[in-house]
Write a protein that binds this DNA or RNA. Structure first.
Length: 223
DNA sequence: ACCCAGGGTCATA
DNA sequence: TATGACCATGGG
Protein backbone atom coordinates (compact mmCIF):
# COMPACT_ATOMS: atom_id res chain seq x y z
CA UNK A 1 0.00 0.00 0.00
CA UNK A 2 3.03 2.23 0.04
CA UNK A 3 4.99 1.10 -2.97
CA UNK A 4 3.14 2.97 -5.71
CA UNK A 5 5.09 6.21 -5.63
CA UNK A 6 8.46 4.58 -5.88
CA UNK A 7 7.78 2.65 -9.07
CA UNK A 8 7.80 5.55 -11.49
CA UNK A 9 7.07 9.22 -12.11
CA UNK A 10 3.74 8.40 -13.70
CA UNK A 11 2.81 6.44 -10.62
CA UNK A 12 4.05 9.25 -8.39
CA UNK A 13 1.94 11.70 -10.37
CA UNK A 14 -1.15 9.54 -9.95
CA UNK A 15 -0.53 9.11 -6.26
CA UNK A 16 -0.13 12.84 -5.71
CA UNK A 17 -3.19 13.56 -7.85
CA UNK A 18 -5.25 11.15 -5.85
CA UNK A 19 -4.12 12.78 -2.61
CA UNK A 20 -4.38 16.43 -3.56
CA UNK A 21 -6.37 16.73 -6.77
CA UNK A 22 -5.51 19.04 -9.66
CA UNK A 23 -3.44 22.12 -8.80
CA UNK A 24 -4.37 24.44 -11.69
CA UNK A 25 -0.93 25.98 -11.84
CA UNK A 26 0.64 28.54 -12.33
CA UNK A 27 -1.06 31.01 -9.94
CA UNK A 28 -1.27 33.92 -12.39
CA UNK A 29 -3.82 35.59 -14.65
CA UNK A 30 -1.65 36.02 -17.73
CA UNK A 31 1.45 34.46 -19.31
CA UNK A 32 3.41 37.63 -18.60
CA UNK A 33 2.44 37.42 -14.94
CA UNK A 34 3.81 33.88 -14.96
CA UNK A 35 7.13 35.13 -16.29
CA UNK A 36 7.38 37.92 -13.74
CA UNK A 37 6.51 35.52 -10.94
CA UNK A 38 9.11 33.05 -12.16
CA UNK A 39 11.84 35.67 -11.78
CA UNK A 40 10.57 37.07 -8.51
CA UNK A 41 10.23 33.67 -6.84
CA UNK A 42 13.91 32.83 -7.27
CA UNK A 43 14.99 31.59 -3.86
CA UNK A 44 12.04 33.42 -2.36
CA UNK A 45 8.83 32.46 -0.56
CA UNK A 46 5.81 32.79 -2.83
CA UNK A 47 3.90 34.90 -0.32
CA UNK A 48 6.48 37.65 -0.72
CA UNK A 49 6.21 37.40 -4.49
CA UNK A 50 2.45 37.94 -4.29
CA UNK A 51 2.95 41.25 -2.56
CA UNK A 52 5.40 42.41 -5.19
CA UNK A 53 3.11 41.37 -8.05
CA UNK A 54 0.20 43.05 -6.31
CA UNK A 55 2.19 46.27 -6.19
CA UNK A 56 2.90 46.01 -9.91
CA UNK A 57 -0.76 45.37 -10.68
CA UNK A 58 -2.03 48.29 -8.63
CA UNK A 59 0.50 50.47 -10.34
CA UNK A 60 -0.69 49.24 -13.72
CA UNK A 61 2.80 48.13 -14.72
CA UNK A 62 2.27 44.43 -15.20
CA UNK A 63 3.12 44.53 -18.90
CA UNK A 64 6.49 44.61 -20.67
CA UNK A 65 6.24 48.14 -22.07
CA UNK A 66 4.84 49.80 -18.95
CA UNK A 67 7.31 48.02 -16.75
CA UNK A 68 10.20 49.18 -18.92
CA UNK A 69 8.91 52.72 -18.64
CA UNK A 70 9.56 52.72 -14.90
CA UNK A 71 12.86 53.98 -13.55
CA UNK A 72 14.80 51.06 -12.13
CA UNK A 73 14.75 52.56 -8.64
CA UNK A 74 10.96 52.77 -8.70
CA UNK A 75 10.65 49.25 -10.03
CA UNK A 76 12.94 48.01 -7.27
CA UNK A 77 10.80 49.76 -4.68
CA UNK A 78 7.63 48.12 -6.01
CA UNK A 79 9.10 44.64 -5.86
CA UNK A 80 10.91 45.17 -2.57
CA UNK A 81 8.82 42.59 -0.66
CA UNK A 82 10.11 39.80 -2.90
CA UNK A 83 13.69 40.30 -1.74
CA UNK A 84 16.86 40.77 -3.84
CA UNK A 85 14.92 43.71 -5.23
CA UNK A 86 17.86 45.39 -6.94
CA UNK A 87 19.00 42.34 -8.88
CA UNK A 88 15.44 41.31 -9.63
CA UNK A 89 14.59 44.77 -10.95
CA UNK A 90 17.43 44.37 -13.44
CA UNK A 91 16.32 40.85 -14.31
CA UNK A 92 12.75 41.95 -14.96
CA UNK A 93 14.01 44.67 -17.25
CA UNK A 94 16.14 42.18 -19.13
CA UNK A 95 13.13 39.90 -19.48
CA UNK A 96 10.93 42.70 -20.76
CA UNK A 97 13.56 43.90 -23.22
CA UNK A 98 13.80 40.39 -24.54
CA UNK A 99 10.04 40.12 -24.95
CA UNK A 100 9.77 43.43 -26.77
CA UNK A 101 12.80 42.82 -28.98
CA UNK A 102 11.51 39.37 -29.88
CA UNK A 103 8.22 40.82 -31.07
CA UNK A 104 6.10 39.94 -28.05
CA UNK A 105 4.47 36.76 -26.81
CA UNK A 106 2.68 36.10 -30.06
CA UNK A 107 5.92 35.98 -32.02
CA UNK A 108 7.63 33.87 -29.37
CA UNK A 109 4.78 31.40 -29.45
CA UNK A 110 5.72 30.50 -33.02
CA UNK A 111 9.20 29.34 -32.05
CA UNK A 112 10.08 25.71 -31.41
CA UNK A 113 10.65 24.77 -27.80
CA UNK A 114 14.41 24.16 -27.87
CA UNK A 115 15.07 27.40 -29.68
CA UNK A 116 12.85 29.31 -27.27
CA UNK A 117 14.60 27.70 -24.33
CA UNK A 118 18.02 28.77 -25.60
CA UNK A 119 16.73 32.28 -26.15
CA UNK A 120 15.40 32.46 -22.60
CA UNK A 121 18.67 31.15 -21.17
CA UNK A 122 20.49 33.93 -23.01
CA UNK A 123 18.53 36.49 -20.98
CA UNK A 124 20.62 37.67 -18.07
CA UNK A 125 19.02 36.51 -14.83
CA UNK A 126 17.08 33.62 -16.35
CA UNK A 127 18.62 30.26 -15.47
CA UNK A 128 17.40 26.71 -16.17
CA UNK A 129 14.57 26.59 -13.66
CA UNK A 130 13.21 30.02 -14.46
CA UNK A 131 13.38 29.27 -18.18
CA UNK A 132 11.49 26.02 -17.71
CA UNK A 133 8.88 27.69 -15.50
CA UNK A 134 8.25 30.08 -18.35
CA UNK A 135 8.27 27.38 -21.04
CA UNK A 136 5.86 25.13 -19.17
CA UNK A 137 3.52 27.56 -17.45
CA UNK A 138 3.54 30.55 -19.77
CA UNK A 139 3.96 28.79 -23.13
CA UNK A 140 2.54 25.35 -22.37
CA UNK A 141 5.61 23.51 -23.65
CA UNK A 142 6.26 19.94 -22.47
CA UNK A 143 9.29 20.52 -20.24
CA UNK A 144 9.79 19.48 -16.65
CA UNK A 145 10.82 21.99 -13.99
CA UNK A 146 13.48 20.78 -11.56
CA UNK A 147 13.57 22.66 -8.29
CA UNK A 148 14.88 22.13 -4.77
CA UNK A 149 11.68 20.35 -3.74
CA UNK A 150 12.01 17.95 -6.66
CA UNK A 151 15.58 17.06 -5.80
CA UNK A 152 14.72 16.45 -2.19
CA UNK A 153 11.68 14.30 -2.92
CA UNK A 154 13.41 12.22 -5.60
CA UNK A 155 16.34 11.66 -3.31
CA UNK A 156 14.02 10.54 -0.52
CA UNK A 157 12.27 8.22 -2.90
CA UNK A 158 15.59 6.72 -3.93
CA UNK A 159 15.15 7.75 -7.56
CA UNK A 160 18.37 9.77 -7.70
CA UNK A 161 21.71 9.95 -5.92
CA UNK A 162 21.46 13.67 -5.38
CA UNK A 163 24.48 14.95 -7.30
CA UNK A 164 22.86 14.93 -10.72
CA UNK A 165 22.91 18.07 -12.80
CA UNK A 166 19.81 20.03 -13.74
CA UNK A 167 19.62 18.80 -17.32
CA UNK A 168 20.13 15.22 -16.27
CA UNK A 169 17.15 15.32 -13.90
CA UNK A 170 14.99 17.12 -16.42
CA UNK A 171 15.67 14.50 -19.10
CA UNK A 172 15.08 11.70 -16.65
CA UNK A 173 11.55 12.85 -15.97
CA UNK A 174 10.75 14.00 -19.49
CA UNK A 175 11.80 10.69 -20.99
CA UNK A 176 9.63 8.76 -18.62
CA UNK A 177 6.58 11.01 -18.71
CA UNK A 178 6.85 11.89 -22.38
CA UNK A 179 6.04 15.13 -24.21
CA UNK A 180 2.91 15.60 -22.12
CA UNK A 181 2.68 19.22 -21.00
CA UNK A 182 -0.41 18.63 -18.86
CA UNK A 183 1.25 15.80 -16.96
CA UNK A 184 4.53 17.67 -16.50
CA UNK A 185 2.59 20.70 -15.36
CA UNK A 186 0.68 18.72 -12.75
CA UNK A 187 3.69 16.76 -11.56
CA UNK A 188 5.77 19.82 -10.74
CA UNK A 189 2.82 21.63 -9.22
CA UNK A 190 1.98 18.66 -7.03
CA UNK A 191 5.58 18.21 -5.90
CA UNK A 192 5.64 21.82 -4.71
CA UNK A 193 2.24 21.47 -3.07
CA UNK A 194 3.26 18.26 -1.38
CA UNK A 195 6.46 19.81 -0.09
CA UNK A 196 4.61 22.73 1.42
CA UNK A 197 1.86 20.56 2.85
CA UNK A 198 3.80 17.71 4.37
CA UNK A 199 7.55 17.77 4.07
CA UNK A 200 8.53 20.53 6.42
CA UNK A 201 10.99 19.92 9.19
CA UNK A 202 9.31 17.65 11.65
CA UNK A 203 10.07 14.45 13.55
CA UNK A 204 7.90 12.37 11.27
CA UNK A 205 6.05 13.00 8.06
CA UNK A 206 2.65 12.92 9.72
CA UNK A 207 -0.24 12.43 7.35
CA UNK A 208 2.01 12.16 4.33
CA UNK A 209 -0.03 10.66 1.45
CA UNK A 210 3.08 8.93 0.18
CA UNK A 211 3.21 7.00 3.43
CA UNK A 212 6.18 4.76 3.85
CA UNK A 213 7.36 5.49 0.33
CA UNK A 214 8.13 9.05 1.34
CA UNK A 215 10.99 8.52 3.77
CA UNK A 216 11.13 12.11 4.91
CA UNK A 217 10.96 11.04 8.51
CA UNK A 218 13.82 12.13 10.68
CA UNK A 219 15.94 13.43 7.86
CA UNK A 220 16.61 16.77 9.48
CA UNK A 221 16.66 18.45 6.11
CA UNK A 222 14.57 21.61 6.20
CA UNK A 223 11.85 22.28 3.71
C1' DA B 1 18.22 34.94 17.35
C1' DC B 2 18.26 31.81 14.34
C1' DC B 3 16.75 29.17 9.68
C1' DC B 4 14.90 29.26 5.26
C1' DA B 5 12.27 30.15 0.95
C1' DG B 6 9.29 27.43 -5.99
C1' DG B 7 17.77 30.60 -8.08
C1' DG B 8 21.32 32.93 -10.65
C1' DT B 9 25.67 35.27 -11.35
C1' DC B 10 30.29 36.04 -10.49
C1' DA B 11 34.97 35.23 -8.70
C1' DT B 12 38.15 31.95 -7.44
C1' DA B 13 40.87 27.26 -7.41
C1' DT C 1 33.99 21.30 -12.67
C1' DA C 2 33.07 22.82 -8.31
C1' DT C 3 32.60 25.36 -4.44
C1' DG C 4 31.58 30.05 -1.97
C1' DA C 5 29.93 34.88 -1.62
C1' DC C 6 26.40 37.68 -2.72
C1' DC C 7 21.78 39.34 -3.32
C1' DA C 8 17.39 40.81 0.90
C1' DT C 9 12.52 40.36 2.44
C1' DG C 10 9.19 38.16 5.60
C1' DG C 11 7.43 33.95 8.19
C1' DG C 12 8.21 30.27 11.48
Amino acid sequence: MTAGAASGFRALLQELQRAYGPRHWWPAETPFEVMVGAVLTQNTAWQNVERAIDNLKRRGTLAPETLLALPQSELAELIRPSGYFNVKARRLRHLCSFLVDAGGETALRQRPTEELREALLDVHGIGPETADDILLYAFGRPVFVVDAYTRRLFRRLGRIAGNEGYEQLRRLVEQEIGADAAALNELHALIVHHAKAHCRVRPECAGCPLGGSCPGAGEGQPG
